[in-house]
Amino acid sequence: MTHVSLQELTKVYPGSVEPSLDQLSLEIASGELTALLGPSGCGKTTTMKMIAGLLAPTSGDVTFDGRSVLKDKPEDRGVVMVFQNYLLFPYMTVAANIGFGLKMRKINQTEIDQRVSEMLDLVKLPDLGSRRPSELSGGQQQRVALARALIVQPNVLLLDEPLSNLDAHLRFEMRDLIRNLQQDMGITTIFVTHDQEEAVVLADKIALILDGRLKQYDVSSAFYSRPIDKATALFFGGQNFIEGQVETGVFNSVLGKMQLPAGCNNGAGILTIRPENIRIGQSPDGLNTVTASLSDKIYMGTQTRLLCQVGDSLLEVIANPNDVQEYEVGQNISLHFPRNALWVLPS
């Protein structure tokens, strides 16, 4: 169990002026599962490689349990990285791949064989030890890569896009496997992903990195209910943004007066609410309710997407198909904005 601390970690690649990663600071508690989330090229993999010792930072520090590891070689850090494309050694059997780390530590072959066998059982591939990686499916290769990493009992486990190469069915299976193994073994785990859904379902906490800078580091629900700015809200699928002014807990805008939850500062701001949090119909007390014109209605199987016009603002609403069956395009519709689902972003 290792506490990982990144302190103003910065990386500027040779020949580049702009930093790929700009003063990233994170505190990752022992045994926590953290996601580094962001679009391609935002600096996630660079961060992982600096934690693993495969890249030297331009400035800043990486500490494990308070001790700087910048001078430690990759093999001495106790950090194992599982790459997105698994990178199993193609000329070795599955068993030899899994036992590789132990062999490098000069553990005797009898013990290696025994621990490899245990690992194969753990990742539910007990009979595949003698196969070559090319004879395995993508999901099986992912399990072998995970077993190869876990067998050396790392202090920190790094996973690069662990679910992105798997189909939908395998993603669920693998997600559960990673989550269970991580919790059982208590290894501090950091994974990178560009998929916010993957981050939400897997991670205890998410660090959103945009353009090389940390935007927000929080539990996953906060990114939906309390995004730090519009870019963060947009990354998590936020659609509704209305400009206005906050005055003592009330937001004045094209929607009229909206009662806000506690903690919203006075001044100009952008009101946001997730499409699935807007209710159809009046609120019991009549507050936070507006009348909109239904401009489009799209049936999506388990839900219906409504586009509603209020003044010059277009709002997106996700509703249960049964609740909006009677509404037709062009008709007026009452929308209720629950107070606790509202949030004001800086303008």
Partner: peptide, 16 residues
Amino acid sequence: EDYESVSRTLGASRWQ
């Protein structure tokens, strides 16, 4: 260089 990176994090020295 990714294969070598994997092996380094698995505990292999530069020579190994």
